[in-house]
């Protein structure tokens, strides 16, 4: 069988984080799940388009931030959507 070129370690981390968000979204109400999936998908794809794949420092920063957001999202009382949106709005301020 044909095989895809091996994914780099950082690529695996990104995909694992994406899987984590999708798994956690399953635990929410159907409406909330749909919203979470839309927001998460849009943000991952936007970053995939706009970030230089060799900008490891920034990618690792985003991975750390994403993992924190995922941990917050796992809290049953948190829907997560507004958190993601707020972070999105203020993201430019985090760039130094």
């Amino acid at each position: 069988m044909a095989s895809r070129s091996k994914l780099s370690g950082i690529q695996r981390q990104v995909l694992a984080l994406y899987r984590g968000f999708l798994r956690t979204a399953r635990l929410k109400s159907p409406e909330e799940r749909h919203r979470i999936e839309s927001v998460v998908s849009a943000e991952f794809r936007e970053n995939a388009r706009n970030i230089d794949r060799k900008n490891f420092v920034y990618i690792e920063y985003l991975l750390r931030r994403g993992k924190k957001q995922l941990e917050q999202l796992k809290d049953p009382d948190i829907t997560g959507l507004s958190t993601l949106e707020i972070n999105k709005v203020y993201k430019p301020l985090n760039l130094k």
Binding site: L7, Q11, L15, Y18, R19, R23, R45, A48
Partner: peptide, 9 residues
């Protein structure tokens, strides 16, 4: 690769 993750899920 993001699509592939979604397919597997």
């Amino acid at each position: 690769s993001l699509d592939t993750v979604e397919i597997v899920m």
